[in-house]
Design a protein around this nucleic acid. Structure first.
Lengths: 346, 346
DNA sequence: TGCTAGCACTCTATCTCTCTGAGTGCTAAT
DNA sequence: ATTAGCACTCAGAGAGATAGAGTGCTAGCA
């Protein structure tokens, strides 16, 4: 695999990515940094095709990269692609405005910005929040027999849930319950909460059991709610405009977005590019719903530990050299912003 | 407009709705309850066409209803269409399960069920919540310089927001602030909250002003958040499978769902059917983004007063006789369930 | 040995032409 | 008022024909 062949591969990818048409030998010969004739290029292309890096839609058409071609391109031809400095600044200013942004908010803006910029779908999941612990449980009366349970974790997640009881609680009961919950749940990891544990809680309440068990039930549901990994998807509609993706597939993905969860969770460190063809070969039960698509995943960290993943789903024909730096930027940015916060708090 | 012509119109609509093909005179003559020859039907159809109720895609094709044809059909030919009793029961059981369902939850299940059943997009908005009043404001310390504001309205809406202060509050400050807020805000209608009012609040706090103003700011944002009418849209993807709707239009709608808000808010009482062609004629700045579509809107009530609207957006070629009873059912069901709750509470 | 010019060949996309059949409108008969 | 019959229209499918982009191969050149 000499240098010229790599340059030709890169040229085919670049050209195809921008035009969407199969690339012929003449078009490549016309490029300024290629100084051989089209015949030579034809020979090289034939070799690249034998290596499985290029393919022809039909005999008399130009060449198109295969997913292996893209892989090699990403690996060898675009190392160190960077976001221009002014673009970085433009994006930075987008985040400057609101210092009080929550992690959810950051993920929302990042995915929607990524989707907008790349014209792809952008996805994110938080890491399994099993290690965060309960930092506060509060029960607040809000109306006749109506109570709100407030659950707050060390990771700063807040959720509430309304509960209706059979009877009103008096102050003593309320105080007992709040104290009871704080005693038993403060500092407990979400992953340690089990139905059994809640059963034990209910029995441990003794005389209050009957009255308060709906609240415990509510609390259990709330904790389950918090345990759930949240999948954020933005810009799926962008995919509808790519002709190389089947509308059918996109609709299927819209209807059943969760199928990408295992893929997102499996990814190793760094930026990872996957292709649907590839995935289908390794793992016949199609987790990758959309044919001819690729998925690029990176992770964001909170104080050095993976806190979630951010990715792009788009057609295989994608401007990787442009898109990957953006993804790198956003994961880095989110990591900084949420870690900064944590610093700030402790 | 004699009875036979109406029957022919109905037959064309029914046939076209099921097959999607223009309907010819022979097809109608073959129907059991039509006992005239195809030539007679041709004559009648020509009249219906002159009246603007039917049209031909091209000279040698069958007839297709115009939106005015659908209108007349809905008005004259399908009065009293009802949901079969067993279907009602099936749906009833869907709601039976969870008595603790919130209004939001009900809207979610109703729109997704409607979307599923009708294969259209289902939409809902709550009525402007300007009349609900604040029933509780709470400030809860949750970490170093970190506070959660909890806002609850008489309508049972609960929202929280995290706020970070410059300094920690001591107990006295916290108590003062809670009492202060309760005094000034309890029973105040959301629509009366204005930036000016919050400014006054801040100045009225006197010495506490500097410390607490971020909380007041947070509270203001929270109240704005609650004032927002929430648009729920479900099943837009269903529209992608209708060939008579342009993908382009659907994508535009997905990107900018809010444009239907004014339409939803304008509707009068009862079930209302609107057609994009119609709307475009009356109101050239296209609020109805999707061409060839129709929108059916009904309202749900809470204790007799309109509490929100529920609607379906689909192609003009829609089985109105099937869909409208479903919409009626769901609006009625939601009205009952949320009103029941209100009874229960007061 | 590596590169290039030239040429015959392949194959898709596009255009035109024709043909078929569904459906109509009109007229004359019942 | 209804119907049978007939000529007419027009979209859509199918069949060639054509153009042009791109290839592989061969022979010649540095």
């Amino acid at each position: 695999m000499d240098d010229r062949k790599l340059r030709i591969l890169a040229a085919v990818v670049d050209e195809y990515v921008t035009t969407g048409e199969p690339v012929g030998s003449k078009a490549i010969a016309a490029l300024p940094d290629i100084n051989v004739s089209s015949a030579t290029i034809r020979n090289d292309m034939a070799v690249l095709e034998q290596l499985g890096l290029l393919e022809q839609p039909h005999t008399s058409a130009g060449r198109v990269p295969t997913f292996q071609g893209y892989k090699l391109y990403i690996e060898k031809c675009m190392s160190g692609a960077q976001l221009p400095e002014d673009e970085k600044q433009r994006l930075d200013s987008m985040f400057d405005g609101d210092g009080a942004l929550t992690e959810d908010g950051l993920i929302q803006s990042a995915t929607s910005a990524l989707a907008e910029i790349t014209k792809c779908a952008a996805v994110a999941v938080n890491a399994m929040p099993q290690f965060s612990v309960i930092s506060k449980v509060e029960v607040i009366p809000t109306g006749k027999r109506l109570y709100v349970i407030l659950l707050i974790t060390s990771a700063g997640n807040i959720k509430n849930k309304a509960c209706r009881l059979e009877f009103d609680l008096n102050d003593e009961q309320l105080q007992f319950f709040t104290a009871f919950l704080t005693e038993h749940l403060h500092g407990v990891s979400l992953s340690d909460l089990s139905p059994e544990m809640f059963d034990q809680l209910v029995t441990a309440m003794g005389a209050y059991m009957a009255t308060l068990s709906p609240l415990v039930q509510g609390l259990y549901e709330l904790s389950r709610d918090m345990m759930r990994q949240e999948l954020t998807v933005n810009g799926t509609r962008n995919l509808l405009t790519c002709q190389e993706l089947k509308t059918q597939d996109i609709v299927e993905f819209m209807e059943n977005q969760d199928v990408i969860m295992p893929i997102l969770n499996d990814t190793f460190s760094g930026i990872h590019v996957m292709f649907s063809e590839d995935a289908r070969r390794e793992n016949p039960q199609q987790t990758f719903v959309i044919g001819n698509s690729s998925m690029i995943v990176g992770q964001y960290r909170k104080d050095g530990r993976t806190a979630g993943r951010l990715g792009i789903i788009g057609p295989m024909r994608l401007n990787y050299a442009k898109v990957i730096p953006y993804l790198e930027y956003f994961t880095e940015k989110i990591s900084n912003l949420i870690s900064e916060k944590e610093d700030d708090e402790t």
